[in-house]
């Protein structure tokens, strides 16, 4: 038991150490890296990624995967901009954000039901629902002349209270979403490590068969994991929409799910589950965003970012596998031929 805990912290230290090293390297070699403005931007963008990764961390720690977060971001953004801010400026922005969270949670619930009740494989299901949600977002987008074939126009949100959610907190130079992200990361860390729910999630991730036999309600925990993932995606999309003052129907094409998985894996949330917690996701998000920021600093072409993200995921997974953090049940199931489903 002692060894496990050390490994967990060591993994966090490794990721955090990498972040520090990267930041040092960049601040020495690029002149506009280490200043208030850039760090503010970095943590701002990391906050969106971090919220998505935060939600994903619950699903992944439970041994699953959620590829639909990109689609959830798209459709909740459209829903918020069309319906969540009805009533004009009198609706407090927080209510609209809450609406987005609830929508996201609802979509996550659908995922959870499909996986636990209808008992479909998580990978294929969330892939399909991701495409479905993106398509829904396209369908529900605001159109110029009201008809389905009309031009999709990003509708500028008029609700001042909601738009203010996307701004910096007055006085400090930090965006509101960054504060929210850090606070929620800390809160979810305690949920993961101190509550029964978190404990059960770990149990399912490590060995769901024996977890089930020990009385853990696997269905409920897994569903809740998906709901959390969807809810956080909804929150991220609300904050993003508030910042960009409009929802774009193309949000589902941006690969947020891939970036979220990359952030989690890099931060130390092992595939297959049972290891990792929200702080890992936070560190991973910062790491990924630092790399992306660095790429911009050195005017490296955008396509390198794809190469780097892919290499990072493979390297991090290899690292985790070699160091035994990928659960042994996973290895057994994986057996020798790389199987995906049982």
């Amino acid at each position: 038991m002692k060894l496990r805990i050390s490994t967990r912290n060591v993994r966090k230290l490794v990721s955090a150490g990498l972040v520090v090293v990267l930041m040092l390297v960049f601040s020495l070699s690029a002149d506009s890296f280490w200043n208030w403005r850039n760090m503010g931007n970095l943590f701002h963008d990391a906050a969106f990624l971090g919220l998505i990764a935060l939600g994903l961390s619950f699903v992944m720690t439970g041994g699953g995967i959620d590829l639909s977060v990109g689609g959830i971001v798209c459709v909740t953004a459209i829903l918020v901009s069309r319906f969540g801010t009805l009533g004009g400026s009198s609706v407090p922005g927080v209510l609209a954000a809450l609406f987005a969270v609830l929508c996201g949670g609802a979509f996550g619930l659908i995922n959870g039901v499909l996986v636990t009740r209808v008992r479909l494989t998580e990978f294929v299901t969330t892939l399909a629902t991701g495409i479905l949600y993106s398509g829904l977002g396209l369908l529900l987008a605001y159109r110029d002349n009201g008809k389905l074939s009309g031009v999709i126009v990003p509708k500028g949100i008029q609700n001042e209270s909601f738009l203010s959610l996307g701004e910096k907190v007055g006085g400090t130079g930090v965006f509101l979403v960054t504060y929210i992200w850090i606070a929620l990361s800390a809160a979810m860390y305690f949920v993961m490590r101190r509550t029964n729910f978190g404990l059960h999630t770990y149990a399912i991730g490590s060995h769901s068969r024996s977890a089930g036999m020990s009385g853990v309600n696997v269905r409920r925990i897994k569903t809740l994991g998906f709901v959390i993932s969807g809810a956080f995606a909804g929150l991220a999309s609300a904050m993003l929409t508030a910042n960009m003052t409009a929802a774009s129907a193309s949000l589902g094409n941006n690969g947020y799910e891939f970036q979220g998985i990359a952030a989690c894996v890099v931060g130390g949330i092992a595939l297959g589950g049972g290891k990792g917690d929200p702080v890992n996701a936070m560190i991973g998000a910062i790491f990924l965003q630092t790399i992306l920021n660095g790429l911009l600093k050195f005017n490296i072409q955008a396509y390198w970012s794809y190469v780097i993200q892919g290499v990072i995921i493979i390297a991090a997974t290899a690292f985790d596998t070699l160091f035994g953090r990928v659960t042994h049940m996973l290895r057994e199931r994986r057996s020798i031929a790389g199987r995906e489903a049982v």
């Binding site: 041994g63 996986v115 008992r119 068969r209 977890a211 089930g212 036999m213 595939l271 995906e340 489903a341």
Partner: peptide, 14 residues
Amino acid sequence: RAGRVKLPAAPAEK
């Protein structure tokens, strides 16, 4: 068996 997952008797996969 394509996609069928038995919970919790067998571990759920991605």
